[in-house]
Amino acid sequence: MSSDLFYALTGASLFTLGLYALIKHAHILRKILAINVMGSGVFLLLVALAAGGQQAFDPVPHAMVITGIVVAISATALALALMLRLREASGLAVLPDTSPEELSEQLPEAPSDVASKNNGKNA
């Protein structure tokens, strides 16, 4: 297997892995991280595909990846800010209609979240 193909396949698996984590985890921070892993997968794939073959080195995908990274950073910043606002408002960093079973399975820190909210109210 050529190294380009190896990188391309790694990129594709990162994308799939990220997609799985995005669906599986309830905590928004994990979802945001999953999106970032997916993004890294796409970027890796872009660069790997650019290096493939014997033709001259192609700079266009690198320009695309840099643009993509800028977009990903701004999106992550917005997502984190929203998550903090949501946690401030609801006490939990999960999407509104998450079922209690999922919460107890996946969020061992959930009670402390609620406690910190109550403390905030009492203060």
Binding site: L22, I35, M38, L82, L86, A89, S90
Partner: peptide, 22 residues
């Protein structure tokens, strides 16, 4: 709009939107 409903809806919208773009 603020409030739990709007923030939750915005968060879900953002995640779906990022998934779509990727």
């Amino acid at each position: 709009a603020g409030g739990v409903d709007a923030l939750g809806a915005a968060m879900r919208y953002l995640l779906v939107s990022l998934l779509g773009s990727l």
